[in-house]
């Protein structure tokens, strides 16, 4: 049985207290989402609308909110991991500058991990040559790829990705997107993917959730009907995008 991780989000209120000139900022109000197990979900919304806040809450990094997050987690090896494993690709790479690329990845893994799986990921991301380099010598795009490997390597039950492909060049972005889907098909897990780019969202997601400007709420929740093997077809993606913009005019203001 594949691991099952379903999440129910019910955030009544998340506010940042007033600080200096800035007044109280309500980031999220009455956000209700249900994220079924092993679904690939794209969150689309304007920048600064609180998507990162939502991911931080889901990752357990931010506990200062009112509401409830329920995670139903069942693993094939019963009770081996009580809490679901989370892979988080932050908006900035967040690598430890004093550890090499490889160390940055293996530090998140248990001591008895299989080095071959790390090798394979490094190979696919074209970072095998750079594995013993310190992050300060990497370009931003390379650092991003390292942080993506780090999230993949832990075999997450929930994968959180915060605009992970920004500043990757187009061919690399396409490649990493392909890899992400392959890994996800091989080993299904729940993915929450934040993006601005509607085409990217359509190419990747089972479901699109559109979010409003703060206080953030879910505006619409749309299934992507394009079959997985048609996702590389740009015409198909584009026509679905046009249809979306026509059927849901409220989306247009968000993009």
């Amino acid at each position: 049985m594949a691991p099952m991780t379903a999440i129910t989000v019910d955030i009544i209120n998340k506010s940042y207290p007033a600080a200096g000139q800035a007044g109280l900022h309500q980031a999220i109000a009455n956000l209700k989402l249900s994220l079924p197990s092993n679904e690939f979900i794209c969150l689309v919304g304007p920048s600064g609308c609180g998507k990162t806040t939502l991911l931080n809450i889901l990752a357990g990094l931010d506990k200062d909110y009112s509401g409830e997050i329920t995670v139903e987690h069942q693993h094939k090896v019963a009770q081996q991991h009580k809490a679901p494993k989370i892979g988080y690709v932050f908006q900035n790479p967040r690598l430890l500058p004093w550890r090499t690329v490889r160390e940055n990845i293996t530090l998140t893994l248990p001591k008895d991990h299989d080095p071959k799986s790390v090798d394979a990921l490094l190979e696919t991301m074209q970072l095998f040559q750079a594995q013993h380099v310190y992050p300060e010598r990497l370009s931003l795009g390379m650092s991003r790829r390292v942080s993506i490997i780090r999230a993949f390597a832990v075999d997450p039950d929930i994968l959180l990705m915060d605009e992970p492909f920004v500043s990757l060049d187009a061919p690399t972005a396409r490649q990493v997107r392909q890899l992400l889907i392959e890994l996800w098909l091989q080993r299904p897990h729940t993915v929450l993917f934040v993006t601005h780019d509607l085409r990217e969202a359509i190419a990747l997601a089972d479901r699109l959730i559109f979010l409003s400007s703060p206080p953030m709420q879910a505006i619409s929740d749309i299934k992507v009907p394009i079959p997985r093997n048609e996702r590389n077809n740009e015409a198909e993606v584009e026509s679905f995008r046009q249809k979306l913009l026509q059927d849901y005019p409220e989306i247009r203001s968000l993009l």
Binding site: N56, A59, G60, L61, I86, Y88, F90, N92, R94, L96, W98, R99, L107, T108, R150, V154
Partner: peptide, 24 residues
């Protein structure tokens, strides 16, 4: 704080966090 959050998210634990994140 970003790195400390990263360590928490990936379950580094106290010892690992001290050696690899805080001490350097």
């Amino acid at each position: 704080k970003d790195l400390l959050e990263m360590a928490r998210c990936y379950h580094f634990g106290k010892r690992k966090t001290l050696i690899h994140v805080i001490w350097p």
